[in-house]
Computed example of a mutant assay.
Amino acid sequence: MKTIRTTAAALLISVALPLPATAHPPIAAEDAAANFEKDRADILAMAGNYRVSFNMQESTRWDPDYEVLDPKRSGGNEVVRVIEDTGRKIVLQHLLVITDENDKSHIIKHWRQDWEYEPEKLLVYSDKGGWTWEDVPERMRTGRWSQTVWQVDDSPRYGGWGQFETQAGIRRWRSNWTWRPLARRDAVRNPVYDRYYSINRHQPTPDGWIHWQDNTKMGTRDGKLVPIVQEYVLNTYIKYDNYDVKAADDYWAATKDYWAAVRAEWDRIAATKGGIAIEEKTDTGTVISGRLLTIADEIHENRLTIAKAVAEAKKLIEANTRKL
């Protein structure tokens, strides 16, 4: 959709921030080769069983009329599994494990992160309900990894590219500046901002790893995109397995073939339609997210065959996406 590309370009210009490629110099080929296995080890080390805390805090208001929200804290138990590793591409699937008052475990398929080494392009958020392909500058590819984050139904959320680096003795991966759609926690409030402009960091720790986000919440004023408030998000993953880890692995064993087909269909749509454009709802993500997830539940409960599930999922994705 031409409108989405044009709007996204205009928004980037109006923000007037430095181009992402200026954040770091190119990496020499010999340095990239020397660090490749270390990079892979840090990505793969994010797999495991964890107790997770999600800490969100709006800090600095850029709009003098905006009232800063109180900090928000939440947490849970989360399993992270490597579901693909080809050497230059690593895919990590997150699964939340919720225990009810009757000690019964419920699995919520959570986000997914795809890491790709020296990518030529990646799928990025461009405007409401739209994700388009963006080239990684050629001089910035050597030695760098992209991270693409996908929503619970395997539709896209955001993508960025960056590098592993060590500062003050701490090793981390840092992204370029990336656009993101609102998280559900914000979208349901119908706020004055409608997207984030963010830097994303992943850092290993002695106890697990942290995911740190620096989000500038952006809104439109007089036809221009302007900053409203700054938010800092720190998600801490601490190694922990005193919960029903098996429930998560059983869910994935039962549904992994279905989700592989869903991922493949989203990939096909992105390749053939110039990206992904789909209507989103504030409380669920894409308009088909709820059904794609319940289909998986029906497979897990032996109420639906994988063949029928995949056929229905493909129809849903095809019918609800538009050509860009």
Results as ranks from 00 to 15, higher is better:
Lys2Asn: 14
Ile4Phe: 15
Ile4Trp: 15
Thr6Lys: 11
Thr7Val: 13
Ala8Ser: 15
Ala9Phe: 09
Ala10Met: 05
Leu11Glu: 12
Leu12Gln: 15
Ser14Glu: 05
Val15Met: 15
Ala16Phe: 13
Leu17Trp: 14
Ala21Trp: 15
Ala28Ser: 12
Ala28Glu: 10
Ala32Ile: 02
Asp39Asn: 06
Ala41Pro: 09
Ile43Lys: 00
Leu44Asn: 03
Ala45Arg: 00
Ala47Cys: 09
Ala47Lys: 01
Gly48Cys: 08
Asn49Phe: 12
Tyr50Thr: 03
Ser53Glu: 15
Asn55His: 04
Arg61Trp: 10
Tyr66Met: 06
Gly76Lys: 00
Asn77Ala: 09
Asn77Arg: 07
Asn77Tyr: 15
Glu78Gly: 13
Val79Leu: 07
Val79Cys: 08
Val80Arg: 06
Gly87Ala: 02
Lys89Ile: 03
Ile90Pro: 15
Ile90Gly: 06
Val91Met: 00
Gln93His: 04
Leu95Lys: 00
Leu96Phe: 14
Ile98Ser: 12
Asp103Gln: 05
His106Asp: 10
Glu116Phe: 12
Glu118Ala: 06
Glu120Asp: 11
Glu120Leu: 06
Lys121Ala: 08
Leu123Val: 03
Tyr125Arg: 00
Ser126Ala: 11
Gly129Val: 06
Trp131Pro: 10
Glu134Met: 02
Glu134Asp: 07
Pro137Trp: 01
Arg141Glu: 05
Arg141His: 10
Gly143Lys: 03
Trp145Thr: 00
Ser146Met: 04
Gln151Thr: 10
Val152Ser: 13
Asp154Arg: 01
Ser155Lys: 00
Ser155Ile: 03
Arg157Trp: 10
Tyr158Thr: 09
Tyr158Trp: 06
Gly160Phe: 09
Trp161Ser: 03
Thr166Ile: 10
Ser175Cys: 14
Thr178Phe: 13
Thr178Gly: 14
Pro181Ser: 05
Pro181Ala: 04
Leu182Gln: 03
Ala183Ser: 12
Val192Asp: 11
Tyr193Cys: 06
Tyr193His: 05
Ile199Arg: 11
His202Glu: 04
Asp207Trp: 06
Trp209Arg: 01
Gln213Cys: 05
Asn215Ala: 08
Lys217Arg: 08
Gly223Val: 06
Lys224Ala: 15
Ile228Arg: 01
Gln230Ser: 11
Val233Phe: 12
Leu234Ser: 10
Leu234Ala: 03
Tyr237Gly: 02
Ile238Leu: 07
Tyr240Gln: 13
Lys246Leu: 12
Lys246Gln: 10
Tyr251His: 11
Ala253Ser: 07
Asp257Ala: 05
Asp257Glu: 08
Arg263His: 04
Ala264Asn: 04
Glu265Met: 07
Glu265Gln: 05
Trp266Ala: 00
Asp267Ile: 07
Asp267Ser: 06
Gly274Thr: 05
Ala277Asp: 14
Ala277Val: 14
Glu280Gly: 10
Lys281Phe: 07
Thr282Gln: 09
Asp283Glu: 04
Thr284Leu: 03
Thr286Asn: 02
Val287Glu: 01
Gly290Lys: 00
Arg291Ile: 09
Ile295Met: 04
His300Ile: 01
Glu301Val: 02
Asn302Ser: 13
Arg303Cys: 07
Leu304Lys: 01
Thr305Asp: 09
Lys308Leu: 14
Lys314Gly: 06
Glu318Leu: 08
Glu318Cys: 08
Ala319Phe: 14
Asn320Met: 07
Asn320Ser: 03
Arg322Tyr: 15
Lys323Glu: 11
